[in-house]
Design a binder for these strands. Structure first.
Length: 214
DNA sequence: CACCAGGTTGACC
DNA sequence: GGTCAACATGGT
C-alpha cells in the first residue's frame, strides 16, 4: 500500500473538516495572551479569561503591564495555573510595552523565536504559536496532538525533530502552517484519543483524491 | 470519582 | 544529558 505524504494528509484533513481559520483573536497581542492561557486548558476557558481582560481594558501591553496582579489572577483563574499564568502575562506585557510589539514582530523568524523562548512561561509550542499566529512568520507548531497523530502513523521524535520533518517536507507557507496545525488539533480531538485512536487509518493510505492541488 | 485539557519550569539524578 | 513533580481550574 502507498503511504500519504504530509501534504496529502493535509488535504485529507481539509476535505474532512473544512478550514479552521485559526487563531481566533482581534489583535496580535491577544494571540500572545491566548497562547499563554491555553496551556494545558480548554479554549472555552481561555475565551472567558480573554473576555474578562478585555472588559477591564487589559488587552493592551501597556495596560496589562501596569495592572494589579491580584486582579489579573482573578480574571484568568478559570484557565488553571492562574498564579503563574497571571504573573507571566504581566511580565510578557511589560516586555512588549518596553520593546514595542511592531519592533519585536519585525525581527527575522529565528531571532523572534529565540526572543520569545527567553520569556518566562514561553516554551517551544508557545513560542512557535506566537511566531506563526501573532507575527505571521513561517514556523510549524508542534503540540501534544501532533505528536500523538505522528505516533499513530509510526513516526516518533522530539519537538524539534517533528518540526523539521514538517518544515522540510512542506513548502514554506504561513497560511498552510496555520491551517495544518489547526486541522491536526481538531482532528485529534475528535478521533485520536490519548489511549485510543479511531481515526488515523484515514491518514495512512493514499488515494487518487490526495493528489489534488493544495 | 478518575481523567483530561492547543505546556513550562526547576529540581534532581 | 534525561526524567518528573508542581502548577490549578473546569468539564466529562
Amino acid at each position: 500500500m502507498t503511504f500519504k505524504t504530509l501534504k496529502q494528509i493535509y488535504i485529507t484533513l481539509l476535505n474532512e473538516l473544512g478550514p479552521q481559520d485559526w487563531w481566533p483573536a482581534e489583535t496580535p497581542f491577544e494571540v500572545v495572551v491566548g497562547a499563554i492561557l491555553t496551556q494545558q486548558t480548554k479554549w472555552t476557558n481561555v475565551e472567558q479569561a480573554i473576555s474578562n481582560l478585555k472588559i477591564h481594558g487589559l488587552m493592551e501591553p501597556e495596560c496589562l503591564a501596569e495592572a494589579d496582579p491580584g486582579s489579573v489572577e482573578d480574571f484568568v483563574r478559570c484557565c488553571g495555573f492562574y498564579r503563574q499564568k497571571a504573573s507571566r502575562l504581566v511580565n510578557i506585557a511589560k516586555y512588549f510595552a518596553d520593546n514595542g510589539l511592531e519592533n519585536v514582530f519585525s525581527m527575522p523568524v529565528g531571532d523572534l523565536r529565540s526572543e520569545m523562548l527567553s520569556l518566562n512561561g514561553v516554551g517551544n509550542e508557545t513560542a512557535d504559536s506566537i511566531v506563526l499566529y501573532a507575527a505571521n512568520k513561517p514556523k510549524f507548531v508542534i503540540d501534544a496532538y501532533t505528536t500523538r497523530i505522528m505516533r499513530c502513523l509510526g513516526i516518533e521524535g522530539d519537538y524539534i525533530h517533528l518540526q523539521e520533518l514538517f518544515e522540510g517536507e512542506l513548502e514554506e507557507d504561513v497560511e498552510l502552517y496555520k491551517e495544518y496545525h489547526a486541522l491536526i488539533v481538531e482532528y485529534a480531538k475528535r478521533y485520536c484519543g490519548k489511549k485510543r485512536c479511531d481515526g488515523c487509518l484515514l491518514l495512512t493510505t493514499a488515494t487518487e483524491l490526495d493528489g489534488q492541488n493544495g
